[in-house]
Amino acid sequence: MIKDIENREDLVMLMSKFYNKLLKDNTISYLFTDIAKINLEEHLPIITDFWNLSLFGKGNYKNNVLQLHLDLNKKSNLTPEHFKTWLATFNLTVDENFSGENSERIKTKALSISTVMQIKLHKSA
């Protein structure tokens, strides 16, 4: 049986697998590599901090995640297809590696974040 997401270490593994999948998908990878120009080694601890705070209420993530995406959207339009790909890849990665209450909670949070972000991006356009 697959275990649930229990701690930050589980989130580190999840984010690593998730971003490795995203970076192999040509429909979305360019947003990370060419537009945002993320350094995955630097980005993973930050995004792990975000999910650690979001899921467990722990950590010190301080960035404005919405503003980061509003800025990115100014450089390259974030489309509903990008969000569908992001969410489908996120859910698939969770389901392949974890099962349980926290796994379901993180998928629900991802859906909520994706939905709110799309609404905010649309309003700012």
Rank of each mutant, 00 (worst) to 15 (best):
K3D: 11
E6H: 09
N7G: 13
N7A: 09
R8E: 09
E9P: 05
V12Q: 15
L14G: 03
M15L: 13
K17M: 06
K17N: 13
F18M: 01
K24I: 00
D25G: 01
T27W: 05
I28R: 00
I28K: 00
S29E: 00
Y30P: 03
L31G: 00
L31S: 03
A36F: 07
A36Y: 06
N39Y: 02
N39I: 05
L44N: 03
P45G: 10
I46D: 06
I46Y: 08
N52I: 04
N52F: 09
L53Y: 09
F56P: 00
G57C: 05
G59Y: 01
G59Q: 02
K62L: 11
L66T: 14
L70Q: 05
K74Y: 02
S76F: 01
N77S: 13
L78E: 02
T79E: 04
P80D: 13
P80F: 06
H82G: 05
F83E: 01
K84C: 08
A88H: 15
A88M: 12
N91R: 14
L92D: 15
T93Q: 12
D95E: 14
F98R: 03
G100E: 10
G100V: 11
E101V: 15
S103M: 11
R105E: 07
I106A: 11
K107D: 08
I113Y: 12
I119M: 13
I119R: 15
L121W: 06
H122N: 13
S124T: 11
